[in-house]
Each structure stands twice: as structure tokens, then as C-alpha cells.
Design a binder for these strands. Sequence first.
DNA 1: CAGTCTACTGAGCAGTCGCTTATTCTCGGG
DNA 2: CCCGAGAATAAGCGACTGCTCAGTAGACTG
Lengths: 214, 214
Amino acid sequence: MPRLEPAALAEETSDDLWADHDPPASRRLLLAAVDSFAELGYHGTTTRQIAATAGMSPAALYVHYRTKGDLLFQIALTAHESVVATLHAAMDPRAARPARIRAMVYAFTRWHARHHRAARVIQQHELAALPADHRERVYALRRETARMFLDEVSAGVAAGEFDVPDPAGTTRALTSLGIDVARWYDPAGARSPEEIAALYAHLALRMLGVRPAG
Amino acid sequence: MPRLEPAALAEETSDDLWADHDPPASRRLLLAAVDSFAELGYHGTTTRQIAATAGMSPAALYVHYRTKGDLLFQIALTAHESVVATLHAAMDPRAARPARIRAMVYAFTRWHARHHRAARVIQQHELAALPADHRERVYALRRETARMFLDEVSAGVAAGEFDVPDPAGTTRALTSLGIDVARWYDPAGARSPEEIAALYAHLALRMLGVRPAG
DNA sequence: CAGTCTACTGAGCAGTCGCTTATTCTCGGG
DNA sequence: CCCGAGAATAAGCGACTGCTCAGTAGACTG
């Protein structure tokens, strides 16, 4: 099991995705929406539920958000931007290749465990409920994430540091592994986000054909 | 890239999950429901949509199914039973360990690509819409699937054939990888279910620390 | 040809949905 | 003390939801 530098990786990005969301009432609505969307789905959640969870009347939601879909868009945009920021922060340009991709997988996986509620909302197929232009903004961030992983893997293959017959497919598997953590992760479960992330970073290096150097 | 025996693996289970569902009208409703649930989610789908897709009046649905939730249950049960059957068929008791787990990952992954619509329905968190006893029957099948993989990995570790520091976590990763295929798989995409399955079987062996024997 | 059964439909009920509107509350500044 | 402005509410609109039910069409029985 590879050792990671927990201190260096721990706090690149804020723990609370919605920390800088003001005013407080608007933030409470967002939090309520994330929880409810994650558990019951976008269509399974009513605006009345969200408002009630936030301790407000049904109409209060429309003081802060134009529509229910607008709430979903705010969640999706914030979450995807956070993923991209987390990845950028994890990529130390001075680090060697295996260490860098390890840090990326670690950060990516840990993000999906920590923010599993938000991650569930955006990975369920309910982004289809968004208007096309909003959906496209989210997809652009998603493509950026995929590209960061693929560039790193491809460069490693070109440099002979990775042994990967199918870089695109393997990269897809790498990211898929991290994303799916949000589906099954249980805060009451045995493993912490950091333990899962460390395991997955280790598995990623194996998938890339990196011999365990020590 | 390991070679798999496509002939031996290809047709253990029927291609059509709903083949033995009679009468035809009931089957058409099921198919319509799977498509619609997969695309719009359980709560995002209306009984009128399902009936219309099946070419019937809204009330016709209730001739064949007690409730909308009953439709979801039939889908979930059929799909999960198919997964278990597919896995059992893939486990050749005479095969050596690495070949057996490779065949399991191959079959499991290919199932999730082939039946990505059904897989999406049952993996979205909408099984929560089922009554507790029905949900429990589905979860039992899911536990059986997980146990089959864990038993195989554990036995391989005990026999010294696999090099796995964390068998439970690695097994979870193995299955998670296959399940998540249903989320991103696109029939119009570059890779066939068989190609994805072969890649994932290969990656699984790497994750288990099996040296590429040839 | 009368009687029976089954698959199916048209019409609609009671309740809920997202969202709007008119009104009241709250509170800092003059 | 009153005022203006944004935050929040009560009430409710029109559309739609899952589901029901009385009734129809058509194939089978005797």
C-alpha cells in the first residue's frame, strides 16, 4: 500500500462545497435540495419538501431561485467546478509522473466520498432536466476533468512510465472507479474517504502497469 | 491484453432480459417502462407515458400491473436474477483461479453494458420507492453477487495466487467498475460490450496483482 | 345465437405538482 | 417615530399525477 502525503493533500479545497453561498437562507435551501435530490432524485423531490427542510414556506424558495431546475443547476455547477479545482490543486507540476497521477486519483476519489450527496445528484441522469445551455456548461467542466486524466496517462505512456495497452479505456476506468464511490459510499461504513482514496490510488497505479517501487 | 474465449462466454444467458415475459402487451409495457425509467428516472416517468409508448390507453397498465411500483419491482427482480444467473454460468468450476475471476469480471461487465438501460434503472437510488419487503428481495440478490466475487478473491489470496492487501476493498472496486459501465455506456460509442468487458477483465487481474503470464 | 370471459378504454376522482400573486413581516436609516 | 425595501408568507391557480371504475369490443363456449 503506497504512502500518501496526507498533510499536503488534505485541505486544498474547502470541506464545505457551499461555504461561500450567501445569504444563509439561500444556502439552507441549497443544502436541503442536495440532501433531498440525492435521496429521492430530482423528480422525486418537491419544492415544498425542500422549503420545509430549510424551515421555510413553499413560496420562499422562489425568493432565492427562479425555478426548481435553477436549484439543480447551481448544485451541478458548484460541484463540477469544485472537482476541477480539486484536481488542479492536486497536480504538483514538480512531482514525478506516478506521484502526480496517484495524487489526482486520490483527490478525485476522496472528493466523491466526501461529497457523495452532491455527487449523486449530478451523476444520476437527471441533468437531462436542465435546459440545454446550462447542461452544456456542466458537460464542459466534465470534459475538462476527463481531459486532465487522459493527458496525464497519455504522457506517462509516451514516456514509457506506464504500461497501458488502451490509454483511453483505462483512463475511463480510472475516473469511473472514483465517480462510482458516490453511489455506494456510506458515512457509517468502515472506511474513511481518505482510506478509500488511498486504496484507489494504489489500484490506479496497478492498472497503469506501474511496478510497486517501494 | 488477455484473450478470452468468446464462444464459450458469449451466450450463457439470453440476450433479451424480458424474452419469457407474457403476454405480449405486458412485455411491451415492461420495455416501455425500462426505457423511460432509464432516461427520466422512476419519478420522472408517468404511467401515461409508459402506456402511450406501449401503444395503449393509460388504464391498460393496471390490467397487467398492480401499481407503477410493481412495474419497477418486476424490472429490478428480473435484472438482478439475470446478473446472478450470468455470474453462475461464467464460473467454470474446472477452471484455474485467474481464469475464473477473469470470466466473472468479463461476464459481469458485459452484462452491464448490454443491459445498460435496465442496469441504470436498478442502480439509480430509486429502489427506495419500493416497499421494504420487495426492496429486501432485491438486496438479497445483490449481496449474493457481492459474495460470489469476494469468495473468489479471498480464495485466491489464501492460495497465494493474488497479491491483494485489501481483499474486501479491492473486490468492491472490481464490482463497482463493472456496475458503473451502465452509467456511461453508449451503444453508439466506439467500444462494444465485449471489448469493454475484455479490458476490464484485464484490469481486474492487474488490480489483483496477477502477473501477466501470457 | 345467447352467454361468458378477458383485454382494453373513456371519463374522471382526489390529491399533488411547480409556481404566482397579493399581502404582511422585519429592520436599518433618517 | 415613520418609511422604504427586501425577505417571507398565505392562499391558490391550472396542470398533471397515480389510479379507479363502469362499460365496450371481440373471441370463445354451448
